[in-house]
Amino acid sequence: MKVSLFITCVVDSVFPNVGVSLTRILQECGCDVSFPPQQTCCGQPAFNSGYTDEARDVGMTLLRAFRDSDVVVSPSGSCVGMIHHYYPQLFANDPQLHQAAVDLANKTYEFSQFMVKQLQITDLGARFPHRVTYHPSCHGSRLLGVKDEPMQLLQGVHDIEIVELPYATDCCGFGGTFAVKMGEISGAMVDEKAENVARTDAEVLVGTDMGCLMNIGGRLRRTNRAVRVMHLAELLMEGMQLGKAVNA
């Protein structure tokens, strides 16, 4: 299957290893993976702040990049949610762009959604002998509706110990520009989230959106808590390498 990556600006510039892991997993699953280089960002920071013209110009990079793609996969439920829910209205004024936006929405999947729903794979032969807790990001789970898939993939990992995160569905306080604009409220929210992560005694916090994980990870680090923060793709990739090593 031919798959184009929408890697997101945060993963591209700050967390490239998430993109590397995503690429390798898809390649292992037999996908022919491409990365159209015209892409930058979904435009969500501008859109959520009320700057629609700015968001449209940035979103255009995705419409152009993925025009000829069959399937688009991205390591962010938030950015995919942006495409699904807001692109059709963002480009409503131009019939051609609107059609391109609807087409893009129809062929774009969040990583775990693509693995479970499209490839129908939940067991990658990964092995990860650690205590892990999972934070479900709001946009991916609530707005995009990807609620069970990340956990299905985690449950397919061998030797993993999954502990429930208290108040798991409460927002971590990221919210894009909210974290800067309303820094004090956002700081209080992420403090509570980091406390809850610490209470689980997990070695690893895993999630599906690097915005949220950068936020929680930043707070864990500031409060000197030695919790490793990983994207689901990173955990699975590491687990697959260990799985192979054990089986070899």
């Binding site: 700050v14 990365f35 820094g183 930043g218 500031r222």
Partner: peptide, 30 residues
């Protein structure tokens, strides 16, 4: 607003798109 309560990761040496040529050479068609 961010750094008052949390650390911010510094930009790493290479972006994903800078790593891509190597990735695609090694990986596809496996």
């Amino acid at each position: 607003g961010w750094t008052t309560s949390r650390d911010f990761p510094a930009l790493p040496k290479r972006t994903f798109r800078e790593l891509w040529p190597e990735l695609v050479r090694k990986g596809n068609g496996r």
